[in-house]
Nucleic acid binder design. Structure first.
Lengths: 206, 206, 206, 206
DNA sequence: TCCTAAGCGAGACGGTACGTCTTGTCTTCCA
DNA sequence: TGGAAGACAAGACGTACCGTCTCGCTTAGGA
């Protein structure tokens, strides 16, 4: 019936998975730019020609799997944003740093730029999207005095740089501590901005 | 007597300058990674061999001039931080966005990653250093409840992402507006954190 | 009982025939060396894997069928040699050129080298063998003053080059004419050599 | 002045010579078709990329040097043809076989087809040209009853196959002997053909 | 009539050579 | 002496073709 197709598909899927796994492994060890196709295939126990059967080049391999990666990451992170940033407690923030801790190698690789600009930019923009979604839900259709993308980018920069700094310095504080500081740094400003009224606009030549 | 030496030196300086200028021009046009040494020398009207007379490779050319670049940038930005972040008014912040506006091509190139991770990371860390310096001066030897590098990285992420978003979206707001929003977002949190007392530490398992 | 085998055999034979036909067709169109296995199987409406089910490679396909080809050619040519070279008339020689004319594409392909050196060499050596056989029969057990292989190679070179020239120049003369010239060129020398006596040997340091 | 150019030229010439020498060496050892570009450059102590700096591919290397080779060969052989084929004595013919003997490896490689069809065909056609030139000079402007290219091809086939047979059988006879047999085989026929008169044409439907 | 073994198509895969491209080194000459 | 010109080695790239393999489909014979 369709088992024929399925078997071939599975074999192909397995090959692609092995290639991507090899790439990810290598990205943990060295700069993305310094990784050779032959290193990838060697690590994946595949012939170099096989690589080109599936992907045009190294960037294609990354691009073709990057979204799946971020979908996983987003899946893990999304629930954290439900209340995380504006909540009284710091539970959600703590979970964020714990998540970073558990996959510290991955996040550090991406955030420190070892995975290349494409990966870095994709993580950053995906993160900003997640935050924007969250902000919109919080507003429940109400208008924000300041445009959401601006706020989302501010938040993503603030949070990511905190995580980056934390990971690059080998996590010198507890997730609890980081979450608390983050909360204190971010929430007051967000609350202030959300409450800005129209009068304020006039003064700054929007 | 030594005018001969001097002339030679000047000639060398001129050659190096032309190489770096060519690189900067090219970085405005395409990804750093895609720029060839031959493109640089061609644009500089020099032989390719001449390049290797002065620099080991493309990265060396960038690295050898990057600090000079950032010194200029820092020189322009440093005064802005004197009071910028904690001041009541938004004058300094406005000047920051105006600076970004005037050299928008350069900053956009760097912040969007077109100049490569090295340049991006160097800008980011240099920026964090500037902020850290400023914070230390503000404290006048007094202790900060939260370590300065953490705060400096938070601030640099927050500010740079705001600038990045602004430039990538073709500066949809006035520098005034951006400075005001930034001020509202950042200052309350900073004030809160600076006032944290020791009691607070106990709760979060430093 | 054996009809089972037979049917299978026939199917296999048909497949092999189609592969060889495809190869022969392609050899008429382009250099043997430039022909791809995939071109052969495509032309034969077979899968590429099927090719390797029957032959090791392209050379194997040719080698495995080449003898059959030459058997056919030899069958057609053999009778011509009965008296051809030493006869008074040129009937047999004319038939030779007529044969070449009828299969001009094939012979031209082989003789001009389009079929590769293997085919060319095989035709040449097979042709020399045919001539050697003929010479031996003519001698009826008597000794030749000059060794037969030498003569056979001389004759095969002389004849094949005449045919080759004729075909490559689009047969500018009639078979009659070619046969007559060939006769005049070859017969006197052959007669002379056949009549050489032992005295002659002494002078040339056999 | 021009010594600059000359030095570069010489270096290039030397590189090309080394490549060609390596190819010739390899052609003595194995089939032309089986020789790899990397084998050539390795033998020539050059990088593979350097090969492509000078030649498009293996065939180009051969083609670009083949004429020089044949010019040398022709230079050595041309004088032999002054009287060789129609003279009473066999001196010239003996010299031909002695030439073949001295460069037996080269001629055997070419004639047995190890050097590929291109080389074989080029030698054969160049040889026929030499003979045609010689025939024309012999006729001193007088007309030949049979067109010269036809005769030249007959002669080149006859002679080359004799040489080929002789070399492939490890020169079982003396050059003297071969020259004498060749003379006996060829001269009577050539004389006969040269004396053919017009009456003869009518019978064969030119 | 079914069933079973063979021929075959499809296509993934490892391997090898190709021809191209860019890099970094070197040498020779010129200004 | 600095720079231009350009030959060269090194080595990764992406492509092409090869020969091998596995997996099902088809089909023709024998049960």
């Amino acid at each position: 019936m369709m088992s024929e197709k399925k078997k071939t598909d599975r074999r192909v899927q397995r090959t692609r998975q092995m290639l991507f796994n090899a790439l990810m492994e290598l990205m943990m060890e060295k700069n993305y730019a310094d990784i050779l196709v032959s290193e990838i295939t060697e690590r994946a126990n595949l012939g170099r020609a096989t690589f080109y059967l599936h992907y045009r080049d190294k960037d294609d391999l990354l691009a073709s799997n990057i979204e799946a990666i971020f979908e996983q990451v987003a899946e893990r992170i999304r629930p954290l944003f439900k209340q995380a940033l504006l909540a009284e407690d710091t539970v959600q923030g703590r979970i964020l740093f714990e998540e970073a801790q558990q996959n510290s190698q991955l996040y550090r690789m991406i955030l420190s730029g070892q995975g290349g600009m494409v990966l870095y930019n994709r993580l950053q923009s995906r993160f900003a999207e997640l935050i924007a979604d969250m902000l919109e839900k919080l507003l429940l259709g109400g208008d924000s005095p300041v445009e959401i993308p601006l706020l989302a980018n501010y938040l993503s920069g603030a949070i990511l740089f905190l995580v980056k700094w934390w990971l690059e310095n080998d996590m010198p504080r507890s997730p609890d501590y980081m979450a608390a500081v983050m909360q204190h740094l971010i929430r007051p400003g967000m609350e202030r901005v959300m409450l800005l009224d129209l009068d304020w606009y006039e003064g700054v030549g929007r």
